[in-house]
Amino acid sequence: MWILIIRRLVGFLATLAVASILVFFLLEILPGDPAQLILGTDARPDTLLALRHEMGLDQPILTRLLQWIGELLTGNLGMSHTYHVPVATLIGERLPVSLPLALISLLLAIVIGIPGGILAAMRRDKWLDRAVRVKTQILLAIPNFWLAMLLVFVFAITLHWLPAGGFSGWRNIPNAISALVLPAVALAAPQAAILARVTRAALIENLDDVFILAARARGLTASAALFRHALPNAMISVLSIMGLQFSFLLAGTIIIENVFYLPGLGRLIFQAVNQRDLAVVSGVSMLLIASTIVVTFLVDLTALIIDPRLRR
């Protein structure tokens, strides 16, 4: 067991290392000279040269790679040239918006999707099952920015129940949460549909297994057999999908935060790309990648705890 965990941990660190190198090279092959972009096309050549030297762009590529990794290890993500503050500070300001948003969305998706999937599997091929299947199909087909605009139109503009956008910080918690409700719903809707479908499919597959028949033969009712035996087994595949969803939700904030004018990571990286603020782009990318890898690692660990077959 411990050997397995250590092995996964090593894999986790290796993935992180490879990802950081990839991010470095991806930014490297982007067209355009960052110094030129900052100064504009009519900059004087000697200013350009001076800035390139200041940014370290005149160093050989290997030196810069090592520098980049060294800075990552010390937590120094560089300076944003548009805001003139450290990237880490920027992220620190934006994370309290994006992280709660992703977590609330995931929670919503779980609370709606999993019971939906269970109900559909219990009433397989009956009208409830069909209704769930049609609804999830529709939710999956709708682009979430369009759903977001629809939600704003109905709940903010027409009904005035919730704000249409903006975020005024966590000092006023009820306000902060009400600002996050619509974006969270827009983000969660397709994810809930995916979870419902995966849960339903995994459950139905397990319900046809002999061990469910065997559980029924021990006297368990159909629903007891489902909750005690089919559900835990189905959760193994549902869990791995949930891991993928979390990173998807973090990335999904890029669009949704723009629709709702939320000052989160998604908007930060969107603006940084437009302004060629490479330090911010690479810093936020690394953060998103790292969180994805951490979540995958946690999912792996949970699977290891649930499923004894993985613990050899």
Binding site: V210, F211, R218, L220, P232, P308
Partner: peptide, 23 residues
């Protein structure tokens, strides 16, 4: 359900499939 498992016991053919793998 009251009879199954109490008054009537069942042994299945494929023991590798008849047990819940997580239990």
């Amino acid at each position: 359900c009251h009879l199954r498992g109490r008054d009537i016991g069942i042994v299945f053919q494929d023991s590798s499939a008849a047990f819940d793998p997580l239990m």
